[in-house]
Amino acid sequence: MATTQSGGLRWEHGLLALGLALLAVGHVQGLFFAPAEAMMGDVGRILYVHVPTAWADMLVYTACFGFAVAALWTGKATYDAAVEASAEVGVLYNALLLFQGSVWARPTWGVFWTWDPRLTTSAVVLVLFLGVLVLRRVIPEPERRLNLSAIAAVLAYVGVPIVYFSVKWWRTLHQPFSSPQTVDGSFITPLRLAAFGMIFLGAGLIGLRWRALRRGLERDLATPDLPAAAPALRLPGEAGGSAAGGAL
């Protein structure tokens, strides 16, 4: 196992440790030390996990968009790997966001789910980025995979600003933007700690996945997609591609 140089500490490990520490301190403070919310009571403490997840998810998706643009501009495997890594983390955060949101909605709004614009657009963005990941699994040719998944990521990203502004553009059950002006001072420290924690953790997770994916994709992309006229020659390349895909 420890034969390759992939062991050892890297920058992403630092980010992961910092992120986990900040998240833990923020959550302990939010759960046990911050006062309960005036109307929501203790249930209001879900704020410290839900809102940081939402903020971090937007940043992760924005990074994914940037990587997709860079991948299309340069064609480099390093950006191709970053697209996949950040899409994975974005989908993870997005799924958690929807779960936390519905667990919070039940006691406060009275329902687990309603097709309100904020909830609907968040769910749509989750499906779109899941689609990016699925696309990467089903395309064996490395260059096509880079191109199509990066295009899909750019298009999927359109949903992110729409989610953000949905509470402003349309009537929703979801509350509008929270800001330091609308959040009591005693809630802000744990909220900020948890938010930075989620963001650093997300960056560390992207780094970890990026490093694991990069080498295989570099190998894949070093072999050009063969023209469709030579299907017999293409099979070994496809086998190599799907083997690397299976190792993800």
Partner: peptide
């Protein structure tokens, strides 16, 4: 048959429970 409560974006601490 379905009633939903709309919460504002204001998160307030209860008054008087704990001083600043």
């Amino acid at each position: 048959d379905r009633l939903m409560v709309k919460h504002s974006n204001e998160y307030k601490a209860p008054e008087g429970e704990m001083s600043a």
